[in-house]
Simulated assay, not measured.
Amino acid sequence: MIQPGLRDALEGWITALGAIGGRAGNTCDAYRHDVLGFLEFMQRHRGTGLGVAALGDLTLSDMRAWMAHERGRGVGARSLARALSAVKTFTGWMAEREGFDPTAILSVRSPRYRASMPRPLDEEAALAMIGAVEAQGAEGWIAARDAAVVTLLYGCGLRISEALGLSGGDHPLGASLRIIGKGGKERVVPVLPAARDAVAAYVALCPHPVTGTGPLFMGVRGGALNPRQISKVMERARGQLGLPATATPHAMRHSFATHLLNAGGDLRAIQELLGHSSLSTTQVYTGVDTARLMEVYDKAHPRA
């Protein structure tokens, strides 16, 4: 079994990630899951209890065995790269405290994978999605709630976790919202009148009291709305509209960025609105609408 000292060290690292590193709760949970899975494999692979000292004894062969095991059970290259990153970060943190050489683990190459391009909806489909989501609601206040959430995703470029993380104290929405995103990164996003109106319409119909300390968006019983509910209602809506499976809540955020860029928005401004820490992350949107770019080029260039 994994010895208590190593489990305690893992929890200490997770706590440090959240408190000092500013990592979001979901990120910390994913890292814990990845590293715990790694440690459990190593315990089985080596056939002995795994403690802090044993972590420093792991070899390149041990690492290759773990990666082969993960790929053998169907873990994709992107997910394995994320897990390896978590393992390396944890190992480096442990090595600083315990004084062992982490080279065998840190030298393992991450599997290559092709970064997937964002798949935004076109402007007509994005607006149709909001209307179709609203039409799915069994009750008026639920329909208004779902439409308000999706309007925020598209109108403000929010992640689903950011939209559902809003509190009643954020209502009524002003001209802008202060959002705490991934890694505790803070940004200010403008709020369109349509988004303010959608949220106000939901609050007016909501049967549960919207308090300053409670969630803004609530489920049927009054607790915080589960993001899965928005995914499900969008799934039904995209079936009705004939849209692909990529028409998810996150696609509305992609659509926000792509449509701003297509309209001439500055890439660095869009980076700030999305809360990306690196411009390279935002630059992926420049490759989304190549066909449209070539069409504009052919029509506008004087030598065309």
Score class of each variant (00 low, 15 high):
110 S>F: 10
45 H>C: 07
119 R>L: 15
118 P>N: 02
172 P>L: 05
204 A>K: 07
271 Q>E: 09
7 R>H: 06
102 P>S: 06
100 F>T: 06
20 I>G: 10
219 G>I: 01
221 R>F: 13
302 P>T: 08
44 R>A: 14
231 S>M: 15
52 V>S: 11
22 G>K: 02
87 V>F: 04
4 P>F: 00
274 L>H: 01
217 F>Q: 01
228 R>L: 09
154 Y>T: 01
143 A>F: 03
34 D>M: 08
108 V>S: 13
142 I>S: 04
65 A>K: 06
111 P>A: 04
49 G>E: 10
29 D>C: 10
106 L>S: 11
212 G>T: 13
162 E>S: 00
121 L>R: 02
214 G>I: 12
140 G>H: 05
131 G>V: 10
88 K>T: 13
75 V>H: 02
285 Y>K: 08
243 L>Q: 05
226 N>G: 13
13 W>Y: 14
73 R>T: 10
187 R>I: 14
184 G>Q: 03
49 G>L: 05
25 G>A: 15
149 V>W: 02
207 P>Q: 07
176 S>H: 10
83 A>F: 03
264 G>H: 05
69 H>C: 09
156 C>W: 10
38 F>H: 03
127 L>D: 12
34 D>R: 07
283 Q>V: 04
291 A>S: 11
229 Q>A: 08
167 S>A: 15
208 H>I: 09
271 Q>H: 08
42 M>C: 14
285 Y>C: 08
